[in-house]
Design a protein around this nucleic acid. Sequence first.
DNA 1: GCCAATATGATTTAGACAGCATGTC
DNA 2: CTAAATCATATTGGC
Length: 651
Amino acid sequence: MQVDALPLAMPHVAHFQRQGIEELYPPQAETVEAGICDGENVMAAIPTASGKTLIAQLAMLTADGPGLYIVPLRALATEKHATFSELPGVDVGIATGDYDSPAAELADHDIVVATSEKVDSAIRNGASWVDDIGCVVVDEVHLLGQADRGPTLEVTLAHLRRLTPGVQLVALSATVANADEIADWLGAKLVESDWRPVDLRTGVADSDAITYDDETSDPLGIDAAELPPDADLDTETTAQLVDDALADGGQSLAFVRSRREAESLAERLRGDADDTSDTTQADREAVADEIETLDGTVTGQRLADCVRDGVAFHHAGLRSGHRALVESAFRKRTLDAICATPTLAAGVNVPARRVVVRDQQRYTGSGTEWLPVLEIHQMCGRAGRPHLDPYGEAILVDTDDPEALAERYLGTDPEAVESKLASEAALRTHVLSIIASGFAETESGILDVLAATFYAHQTPVDDLAGIVAAVIEELIEMGLVVRDSGDNEPTDGNVLAATEIGATVSTQYITPETGVRIVEGLRTAGEMAEPTALTALEIICDTPDMHDTYLGNEERAAIYEYARQHADEFTTAMGDAEDFERWLEAVKTARILAEWSEGATIETLVERYRLGPGDLDSRIERADWLLSAADAVADVLGVSLPAISRVRTQL
DNA sequence: GCCAATATGATTTAGACAGCATGTC
DNA sequence: CTAAATCATATTGGC
């Protein structure tokens, strides 16, 4: 199927042709046959890099009304915003927590790219633009199965379909076992395909050889006797695989389990660096300089040093600026290899000739577990750059038992996507928001709303009745919801309403537990002689919405002492903390933020408290959000805590 | 008795979404 | 309750 045969405006056809797109890829053509240009709901479950973006564009450009493109990550929102903005005559907006384009009202744009939480939030707050949407594209729908964020996505989609009955839905997914079930839920035609624009060879390797799926093999020739005695065989094999690809003119991505190992593998690969052309070396120097300009942290310095030798590491402890520099340098072929934690597999588009997965297990809080097949496949899917590489290669390393590894991950179907909505934590949040935004006011009304979710499609929605009833009782007890009859009879005729606090919790997008913690904290603070910045920070750091900060054993004593010294500034007495260890972690986070607000530099804090620069950034960002939520709650309570706004301006 | 090799024990472990306000020159 | 790799310190062993 030719691009110029599509029902697109001439400038758009010309735009795609300029990009070298004349003929659609087979899966793309299938979505057209499924009616993607005619307003039909379509779900495409196809590999990474097989042209999902064009499918989305076809839908949004031909839809009757503005398009909404939902992504799971802010970095992806930025990336898609840039891509769509290249379309001639198309005005693209972006709506994420950290950035709203001016007038992020959908009505003012042809396309808005937003994160799922941002869309959920807009719906809760009654944004009017929702009614005008002509087409919703959901990227990475398989994330429906994530325990933490999946429920938000399915509830949001359920709301969207209810509020805008005729919208066209387009779902883009990785290959999963039950794509048909998701498509069915969305009333979409399913296009499923393994087709890729670049061939992908997959295989496993031990120190002797790579064994590909097609039963061919390539020798590696690592002589264990020649290695230094402390060398790790898996690591050496990985290094060899990267070096071989490089000798063949291809870039590599290497996936390992932890941040520390990503960094040490990068250091290891630096040693193999060979000479490059002067222009490439100049580019590397330029990128390294930029990295150093961003901050003077040890992590940044180490990264810059690696980049000078043509390798980089990549993980969530890096600041987003550093990550973006690494990604773009790799895309420009300035770098030979990136050693990464699994962040990179699900993030922005960073394809490479060869992908090496050294580690396939991950610590989960209760021992190590095998990574899901889906995740390994996403890493492998990064192999092969269309038009640049003749083929892609994905190699899993295990020097002990490569056959078992091949059996587990290669030629194996990914797991099915299962709804995680039936958890109390997820339902507390969403039941409250349904009540607060007036979508339902009785238990059965709530169940009606939830009947449109993926959970209800997989399981009779009545199965939720018990949990929903329990959750309503909890919300009442928490003071976020009331029954208007006043008697607390849980009969169905009773009308439910959010309290003023409950409504604030919902619009501020904090979890009910966080809301309650803030209310308690503010009440206690109100009785204190002199609440300080630390008081405000302790409140918001001791909530589930602030992420914990690892508290090492050695630090523990110091933080304990700090907590004792500042006991009169805290809203929790040391003996009263329900979970003392967690509370101490919260104190550590609060202390870091307090020092930050007093002018400590990122360089100092990162070394003093042993956290990544990116971790500090994310905590500051969260603190800003939670303090503003606390401000709003304080307003409702009628208490004033000037310390809140004071710290906020200093973050 | 000194230093190094080795054993034992302690420490550490992926990632990252969300608010928002009102008038102003 | 279920792990595994790395790092720090203690212990042993060779000379």
